[in-house]
Design a protein around this nucleic acid. Structure first.
Lengths: 285, 285
DNA sequence: TTATAATTCGTTCATTTCGACTATTATTGC
DNA sequence: GCAATAATAGTCGAAATGAACGAATTATAA
């Protein structure tokens, strides 16, 4: 649940002396709790948060359960993408995690990582797949690994407060790509939302029902492909009407929503990328 | 009311060693009572009181991940299952995690948790969905939550050694249920295998290619539904031949594989449940 | 009920952490 | 450059923690 680590582990991980770490704890720079005997214990999430905003390089990531070799050498976005494509195709999950966490620990937001690294990387892999340069199982494995990395990133976020605004979302029928909707949920969580993806392959009707039941402040749809365009337009507009009744914002995203199609749709906002989503979500709070 | 828990459970729940916990009991920090034979037992209330006092989780005490279902018999399993169905449908992820981790704190193996709790629970939810008693989004949300819990469980496992036997698997086209294949991978990982699910919706051809490329010791297929039976039989048998050439065991599982169909298939072993899988995998090492 | 496996007991011992203190290094202002 | 200040690193005995052990107890199943 909440993994606690000892001062020694943290000191090694950050690369400072235990004395310094103790002082930081006492000054509140790094929040810590005490055991019954008075020993300090730190939450991994807090340590990661400190590492991110302090700009320090992590020395011993293994001490915090992070992929080893993380933090060694500054990575640039473009270089990471090249390496990541290769590592994903090879199925080298450890290397993939390392590359992503390098960026994350350098204070890149999850939003940035998704927009600037993961999305283009997966696009590239999708193209390779389309050209037949890689096997199907490799493409699927890439998605699996990416999912696991996204899940790891989610674990580093603090749990949403009770008062956090609620958001739900997912993909529609015949749309198996879970990654985009997972990213959307993750990015909203990063912004402090109580966001939850309902999964993929949802009929629009059940999304409507979910909006009525849960009454979220925001509902997102990631649309990569559409089964029946006419029907989609009809139900999507219906969803927007009902969402409006409940003061729920309808956010659409995805490559299947071309300009001509969007003209026939009503929605609160369309997002080309996750930056748009983040900006819009922030405007609601 | 007097839910008594063992020192081991409490130690795992609050993250200290058993030695320390015993000392705290003896010092009166954590009040404990003794059995006739002198073994310590703690009241759940007291542990919650301690946790709140130590400032670790100021959240609701009933959500602290402490064993609420004590005992080891089949009763606990069925009660957990009942509660879990409800919590999953309600989308109460915290409660779901707590229920599953209660079992984990009682030293149940992941295999047992999957076989005896999660699988029947999801079956039950599937039935409710089939009857229209719950909305589609609720059913999908159940799967999402279960997936995240499985991820959490996976984190508790140590990484496989270099010399560990390799296993791959997945589901076939038109078979979107990822959970079973995820469980299979997880259970093999628990046994020390270097197992990796390639994901869902794999054409058999690419599984064959993966077997040739990766040369695993075991490949599993979770088959919930079959698109084209004739074609499936042909390619599945082809897969078995190629697997045999590479000394790879072909493990089949899933509800779509009825007896009559199995007679036309060649494979190494068919598994009705994860216990079968675990037993067979153990026999290979 | 009895046999067997699993857990817990109490204890010892090595390691870690505590708090308070001093020494060293880095930063700032003049 | 130099002094003043702040931050970091190291030292010490006392206390807390975690791992290991055989013996005793409990749980589980025949």
């Amino acid at each position: 649940m909440d993994d606690l680590v000892t001062p020694k582990q943290v000191a090694r991980a950050i690369g400072v002396s235990e004395s310094t770490l103790k002082r930081w704890c006492d000054q509140g720079i790094l929040p810590s709790i005490r055991t019954a005997g008075g020993h300090r214990r730190l939450e991994v999430q807090e340590v990661i948060a400190y590492l991110r905003h302090s700009g320090r390089e992590i020395q011993r990531p293994d001490m915090l359960g992070l992929p080893s070799n993380t933090g060694k050498g500054a990575r640039v976005i473009s270089r990471t993408q090249t390496l990541l494509v290769h590592a994903l195709i090879e199925g080298d999950e450890v290397q993939c995690r390392r590359l992503v966490f390098d960026l994350y620990l350098q204070d890149r937001s999850i939003r940035e990582i998704c927009d600037d690294v993961l999305a283009p990387t997966l696009d590239q892999i999708g193209e390779l797949w389309g050209c037949g340069d890689i096997a199907i199982y490799q493409e699927r494995r890439c998605c699996e690994i990416t999912q696991r990395i996204l899940f790891e990133l989610q674990r580093t976020l603090r749990q949403a407060t009770e008062s956090a605004p609620v958001a739900i979302g997912g993909t529609l029928v015949k749309d198996p790509y879970q990654i985009a909707t997972m990213m959307a949920g993750l990015i909203l969580k990063e912004l402090g939302w109580n966001a939850e993806s309902l999964g993929s392959g949802l009929p629009v009707e059940t999304v409507i029902k979910a909006v009525v039941d849960i009454q979220p402040k925001l509902v997102w749809l990631s649309v990569s492909c559409i089964d029946d365009t006419e029907y989609f337009i009809y139900t999507c507009n219906q969803l927007h009407n009902i969402a409006a009744e409940h003061r729920t914002a309808l956010v659409l995203g995805g490559c299947a929503l071309g300009e001509s199609l969007r003209k026939q749709l009503s929605y609160t906002v369309y997002c080309d990328n996750f930056k748009d989503l983040a900006n819009f979500a922030s405007s609601l709070t």
